[in-house]
């Protein structure tokens, strides 16, 4: 892992006169799955959008692999909670959309990549289905496949499983970790769900209530290891870490109140 792959240099954001993100310095390693955790509305999504180049910092700057981030590009792909796939395109066409504006791939290569990512997310049988005909969990898998097919090195995921039922959500968490490790991608995942954060993360960055300030940086891999079978949730280390993070976030929320 390259330790300084994604770096935040004194990044701050203010909307009008309202500070949303306080001066943040942070370094994220290549191929890490980092979860931004914090109370709702704390500014973690704003921080992630700045990584995507969709918002600009009021102060400071962000670098990806030594290059300054100043606009959106396909190296950093977004997966949203809602409207994650285009309803007028089939599953396969949605995945192909990730490569639509790439001139460096031939049509045959694009087709091959679509097949590969359909298979990776287990949607080969639904290639010709429209998003309205598949479940919410499948739609999120389409969005992940599209981002991977685009060739994104960093996946920016804004509460992507927030609207799903508990069991689908759990299964997608397992799948996301497996895909992330297999495809060697850096993931920045925003959530306010503590259990999801502990299960998914290599590292949790815990933010305060608005304006977002880093209050804890937790190395989850050091505590739980890299392997995350579903039943890890029933183990003592998972339970303890979850309680520790919960305690921190409760403390943070009560301080803000």
């Amino acid at each position: 892992m390259t330790a300084d792959y994604l770096r935040f240099y004194g990044v701050a954001k203010t909307f009008g006169t309202v500070p949303v993100v306080r001066r943040t310095d942070l370094s994220i390693a290549r191929d890490a799955l980092v979860v931004f955790l914090g109370p709702s509305g704390c500014g973690k999504t704003t921080l992630m959008r700045m990584v995507g180049g969709l918002d600009s910092p009021t102060e400071g700057w962000i670098e990806l692999d030594g290059g300054r981030v100043d606009r959106p590009d396909r190296r950093r792909g977004m997966v949203f909670q809602s409207y994650s796939s285009f309803p007028w395109l089939t599953v396969a066409q949605n995945i192909a959309f990730g490569m639509r504006y790439r001139d460096d791939l031939t049509a045959a290569e694009k087709q091959e990549r679509v097949r590969h990512y359909l298979d990776l997310v287990g949607l080969t049988d639904f290639a010709d289905s429209y998003p309205s005909r598949i479940s919410g969990g499948m739609r999120q898998r389409v969005a992940i496949a599209r981002t991977l097919a685009a060739g994104s090195e960093v996946l920016l995921m804004d509460e992507p499983f927030g609207a799903l039922d508990a069991l689908t959500r759990e299964r997608l968490q397992v799948q996301l970790r497996s895909i992330q490790k297999r495809e060697a991608k850096t993931v920045v995942f925003v959530t306010h769900d503590v259990e999801e954060a502990v299960f998914l993360a290599d590292r949790i960055i815990l933010f305060s209530a608005r304006p977002a300030t880093i209050v804890a940086d937790i190395d989850v891999t050091a505590e739980l290891g890299a392997e995350r079978p579903l039943d890890i949730r029933e183990t003592r280390p998972f339970f303890d870490l979850r309680n520790h993070v919960l305690h921190l976030i409760r403390h943070e929320t009560s301080e803000a109140a």
Partner: peptide, 11 residues
């Protein structure tokens, strides 16, 4: 979200 997804893939 549609617009932003398209922007991130280079539209």
């Amino acid at each position: 979200e549609y617009v932003e997804v398209a922007r991130t893939v280079g539209a």
